[in-house]
Amino acid sequence: MDEKEIIIIAAIAIPVTLVIIVIVLFSVFSRRKNRLLQEQENAKKEFDRELAESQIEIREETLRNISWELHDNIGQLMTLAKIQAQIAKDKPEMMAEVSETIGTGIDELRALSKLINPESLKSLSLREAVSLEIERFNRLKFIAAELTVNGTEIPIEVNTQIILFRILQEFFSNTIKHSKASILKVVISYSDKELAITALDNGVGFEKDNDFMGIGLKNMKTRAQLINSVLTIDSAKGEGTALHLRYKFA
C-alpha cells in the first residue's frame, strides 16, 4: 500500500468515523437520559403512592385512637360525672367534684380535637406530632413513653414529614400491639446535616431472621428509602427492639 492509498483511506475513514462517533454518542446519551427521566417519573409516582397510603394509614390510626379515647378516657369521665351528679342530688357539696370531672372531660375533648383536624400533621412539626403521640400513650397508660429532643429543630418538608411520622407511628403501633413492652423511649436529634431518630422499647423483641413485622417492616424500609433516609431495626429475643433512622437534609 503506497502513501497515496493510505491518505485516501484516511481521508475517507476519518470523517466517516467522526460521524459514526457523533451518532453513537448522541444516541447513547439520549437513551440514558430518557431512561433516567422515566426512572425519576416512576420514583415520583411511587413516592406519591406511598405518601397517599401513609396519609390514609395515619387517618385510620387517628380514627382508631379517637375511638379508644372516647371509650376509655372521655367515656369513663362522663360516666363518672353522671354518677357524681346522681350522688350530688342528695349531697349538693359534691357539685364541685362533678364540675371538676366535666372540666377534665372538656380538656380531653380539646386534646382529641387536635387529632381529628386533618390538617394537624401539616401544621405540626415532627417533634410536636411525635410529642402528641407520646402524651397520648402516657395519658391512656398504654406504655411509659418518653421523648427527648436534641439540637435545634430544623423544619422538614411536609410530605417527607408525613412519611417520617408514619414510619414512627407504625413502630409505636407494633410496640404497643405485639412487644409487651412497658417502656418506650424516643430520641430525636437534629444536627446541621441530618436528623437522627432512635426509638426503642423493652419488649419481647424478635430474632432478626424471623419475619416478625412482615409487611409492616418492609413498608417502613421502602418508605425510608423513598425519602433518601436509612432505616435499621435491631432486635433480639427478650432484649427489646430499636429503630434507627437517619434522614439527611438536602
Binding site: 502513501e3 497515496k4 493510505i6 491518505i7 484516511a10 481521508a11 475513514a13 476519518i14 470523517p15 468515523t17 467522526l18 462517533i21 457523533v22
Partner: peptide, 30 residues
C-alpha cells in the same frame, strides 16, 4: 474527543509516511 480521534491517524501518517507531495495537503484540510 472528535479532534484527537481524527488527528491521531493524521499525525501518524504525517510522521512516518510523509513525502513532500501536494497530496498530503488533503490531510491538512482534514
Amino acid at each position: 474527543f472528535l479532534f484527537y480521534i481524527g488527528y491521531i491517524p493524521i499525525k501518524i501518517i504525517r510522521t512516518w509516511f510523509y513525502k513532500p507531495d501536494s497530496f498530503f495537503e488533503i490531510l491538512l484540510i482534514i
